[in-house]
């Protein structure tokens, strides 16, 4: 009953905002809730990443990840053995690769592909959409007791990775099930599908993600969250590029 009531209120608010055509505070609020729904504030997780590209061997990686806040995470490759010990540090708009044999951080650019996957570094780094995009509700429908929204996200600044995003999510969990990424030309570039809701770190979260690349037909990367645990405060030194060697 409470859910239905909440949904009706949201529907009312959405109508009100569409009517005046102003910047959409409900959509923006949903976006902020969506940012917080995927991962806890500080966490550690084990994640597998499999990239399939037509005609190529699959790329399989297993990562141990610790993350803090919206934009800091340290990823350590544990499989395959040839890549074991490589670390990728993401902090704000910065990204470094640490290779044990080289023993110092090498800065990478945001634009390049993330470890040969269909994700770009920016896709992985940009975990807070509310900071980068203005949201507007495009459509809504009732699905059972929940309102399902389609929102259009428009880049706030020209340096944001994608000009426009189309997000589908329900109002209760605020977990998106699809995100379509569009370029400046208006062409759809990629689609992220989130599925397999499981209890992870104390709440229902998607355990499976699939990023399809529309430019390279048939190419996709599947992400499986094998373990997610909420952590207490993480030491500052963990996210310092000069201390990746430990």
């Amino acid at each position: 009953m409470r859910t239905v009531f909440s949904s009706l209120i949201i529907l009312f608010l959405v109508h009100a905002n569409l009517a005046v055509g102003a910047k959409d505070p409900v959509a923006q609020s949903l976006l902020e809730r969506m940012d917080n729904a995927l991962f806890p504030q500080t966490y550690e997780m084990t994640m597998s990443m499999i990239t399939h590209k037509p005609g190529l061997d699959d790329l399989n990686y297993l990562y141990e990840i610790v993350g803090q806040g919206e934009d800091r995470s340290l990823m350590t490759v544990t499989e395959p053995a040839r890549e074991r010990g490589k670390k990728i540090l993401l902090s704000g708009e910065n990204l470094w690769l640490y290779v044990p044999d080289v023993s110092r951080p090498i800065r990478l650019t945001r634009k390049q592909s993330f470890m040969g996957t269909t994700f770009s570094n920016e896709d992985v780094m940009n975990s807070t959409m509310a900071d980068d995009y203005d949201a507007e509700i495009q459509s809504r429908e009732m699905r059972g007791h929940e309102v399902y929204f389609r929102a259009i996200l428009t880049a706030k600044r020209p340096d944001v990775a994608y000009a426009r995003l189309e997000v589908g999510l329900d109002s209760t969990s605020c977990i998106p099930d699809t995100i379509v990424y569009y370029g400046l030309s208006g062409k759809a570039l990629k689609r992220l599908t989130l599925s397999e809701l499981r209890e992870l770190a104390g709440r229902m979260r998607p355990a499976h993600m699939k990023m399809e690349d529309f430019i390279q037909e048939g190419a996709y990367t599947e992400v499986e969250i094998l373990r997610l645990k909420e952590r207490g405060e993480l030491p500052e030194s963990l996210f310092d590029p000069t201390q990746l060697g430990k």
Binding site: V102, S103, R104, I106, R107, E233, P235, E236, S237, Q243, G245, K246
Partner: peptide, 24 residues
């Protein structure tokens, strides 16, 4: 061996690579 003396301080003791610089 290394020890996190505080959340912001780490001490390393022993034989280690200390690579500085940004050139490739």
């Amino acid at each position: 061996a290394y020890a996190n003396l505080t959340p912001t301080t780490t001490l390393f003791v022993g034989k280690q690579r200390i690579r500085w610089g940004t050139g490739l």
